[in-house]
Amino acid sequence: MAQDVKPRIKLPKSAAAGETVTIKTLINHAMESGQRKDADGNTIPRSIINRFTTEFNGQMVLDVTMEPAISTNPYFEFEAIVPEAGEFKFTWYDDDGSIYEDVKKIALA
């Protein structure tokens, strides 16, 4: 699954110091639940993203434990406080050991 996985992130380019901003993230991933069977009746093994974190300048915003009931192409919307200019770091952890990362800078308005 590690190939072709491409996160999408939406957040403002700038914010006032101390402002709360809305962040949306979407990542393409099959999130194979481990409940499905293939054409021969064999169970397709579970293969999901099991954790998603967002940090800002090294401080935690949100840490989500994800289970097989999260839909294909996982989507999250949440809010973060922006105390200063800096960088959001988004990380997705795959069952297969792959880690998908993206960073977005935000300036003070």
Binding site: D4, K6, R8, K10, K24, L26, N28, N73, Y75
Partner: peptide, 12 residues
């Protein structure tokens, strides 16, 4: 467009 998962494939 962000909420629309179809747009992921447009980017691909």
């Amino acid at each position: 467009d962000f909420d629309n998962p179809g747009m992921m494939f447009v980017e691909q």
